[in-house]
Design a protein around this nucleic acid. Structure first.
Lengths: 109, 109
DNA sequence: ATTATATGACACCATTCGGTGTCGTGTCAA
DNA sequence: TTGACACGACACCGAATGGTGTCATATAAT
């Protein structure tokens, strides 16, 4: 149930700014056909489609065919992996940690 | 104060598994010279050094020369950008949202 | 029936990426 | 002083990346 066939690394999928913008657009609009997404960018349809394929491979996007158009929908849950990962490091930028780093930097000079 | 000269996108910097492992190693060990980091990987010194340069460009790593070795230290604070970004989407994988998605999928079939 | 639209699939291309090996230099140790 | 060590700076290479254009096909509109 809800299989995570992650052919593609999620970190990799979100590394590209175009793909992050696609994620944002899909978060705002529930379900959007390819041509409508393409209209938001300067690049051609093929390029946008490729980016969406990568997002699909990472499990971040679902698509379904409706008539002649392919509509895309966000599936944000794979982002949980990112959140867990980054949460581990949040202790390293606490205010105490920042002051310690400042002191260390001053020492070095 | 604490300038963020981010020549490199943080999303890009953490996309590579080797670089994430470097971050992890630096989180565990405070300050580590290049040769010691290199010993943890199968690739050569030059490759590890390049990854560290990318992390430096993203502001995730600081280095200083001590004698003949270059020691690296983690600076996790740029990861805050990732945390903020992903936090925005966390509402899309809440349990309620998951149930809604399930219902929508059933409707479509 | 014809035409316009939306898309997938494919070939193609320049650039970037992630690795290698080598050379030169500064530093530490014997 | 000699030799080992740690490193930066290159040149180099194959594969992946991010884009393009084109062609064929299914669907919608006239």
């Amino acid at each position: 149930m809800s299989e995570n066939n992650q052919l593609r690394d999620v970190y990799d999928a979100i590394a590209d700014p175009t793909r992050r913008r696609l994620i944002r657009l899909l978060a705002e609009a529930e379900e959007v056909p390819l041509h409508e997404l393409t209209a938001q960018f300067q690049m051609g349809r093929t390029a946008v489609s490729k980016h969406l394929t990568i997002l699909k491979e990472a499990g971040l996007v679902l698509d379904r065919k409706v008539g002649r158009e392919t509509r895309f929908r966000l599936n944000a849950s794979p982002l949980r992996e990112i959140q867990d990962w980054v949460a581990f490091y949040s202790k390293f930028w606490s205010t105490n940690m920042m002051r310690l780093n400042q002191l260390l930097e001053e020492e070095e000079e």
